[in-house]
Amino acid sequence: MLKKSKNHMPLYLSLANIIKNKITENKYQIGKKIPSEMELQKEYCVSRTTVRKALKILSEENYLIKLPGKGTFVSDKSNEIQTQNQKFSSLTDSAAKSGKKISNRLISIKSVAGNDEQHTFLQTTNEQQIIEIKRLRYIDDIPFCLEWIWLAPKFNAIKAEDLNMPLYQILQKKFHINPGKGKKTFKIAFANREESFLLNVDEKTPLMQIKDLVYDDHNLPLHITQEIIRSDKFTYAVNH
């Protein structure tokens, strides 16, 4: 039975750490399927919610990959590409260099609880809510990217802005802030029902998932962005 640790770590984090250790110790091998959610529930005497939260964290960290209809497998983290940028380039800038036109459609903006990674990077407490912006992005009027942006609560005034505009244009105009250095993480994801509908692709289609951790030009944390992109419509070049 999995019990709460002395430092009061949530059960789902304890379970995530156990699974992560089994992966690093090669007890769960790369490319192999891990026990099902039900099997993990029984083995550790925890709820389904606890198991799902643990698996979600490990998927976000690229330890696991969920294949719809097949199960959850150990990912090869060597397939994850990370880049450290001296100067951060936005998707809009990247598209402009190739002569493409980027436009945005706001889906939602709201305050959310946030996860541990977001609070750590944005330097907020677990009690604070962070701002979540969700947009559908178009390249030459064709939907190609579903985007989430997370900002610290000090940027709450951004809710009154026209979020169909480029993010950095808004941040510069409203808050006098420019992006500085950033880190990109690339991995493969598979389209779920919402993503397939919004991006006009078949469900389970392989997509490119890009996560950005971006600092401002004073080296302070600025935002986290996650993009799910149709690789048939947009390609990133990584300079070494």
Rank of each mutant, 00 (worst) to 15 (best):
E37M: 07
A96C: 13
L11F: 08
T50C: 06
A96R: 15
F190E: 05
T50K: 04
T24A: 06
L171I: 04
E25P: 00
G182H: 02
I177S: 01
Y215E: 08
T50W: 01
Y12M: 06
S94N: 05
Q209V: 10
S89R: 13
T83M: 11
H8K: 14
R48M: 12
Q118G: 08
A157V: 03
E80H: 07
S98M: 15
A152E: 07
E80F: 10
S5T: 11
A113N: 14
I228A: 03
N85P: 01
N239V: 04
N79Q: 14
K204F: 07
L67G: 03
G180T: 06
K184T: 07
K97Q: 13
I23F: 08
K211E: 12
E147R: 03
V46N: 04
A16P: 10
L67F: 12
E147K: 06
K32D: 09
T124W: 06
K154T: 11
L13E: 13
A189Y: 06
I57C: 06
N21R: 06
E60W: 03
Q41W: 05
N79P: 00
F121W: 08
I30L: 03
S75M: 09
S90K: 04
T125I: 01
N219F: 00
E227K: 08
E227M: 11
L151D: 03
A16H: 13
L167T: 02
S196K: 14
E37Q: 10
K6C: 11
L220K: 15
K70T: 12
P179N: 11
Q172K: 15
N200H: 10
E127A: 07
E132R: 10
I210V: 15
S94P: 01
N126L: 05
A189M: 10
K100S: 12
L40T: 02
D217P: 01
L220N: 11
N26T: 07
L220T: 01
I130H: 05
S108Y: 05
Y138G: 05
S75R: 12
I81S: 07
L91Y: 13
P206S: 12
K56D: 11
S108E: 13
D141M: 08
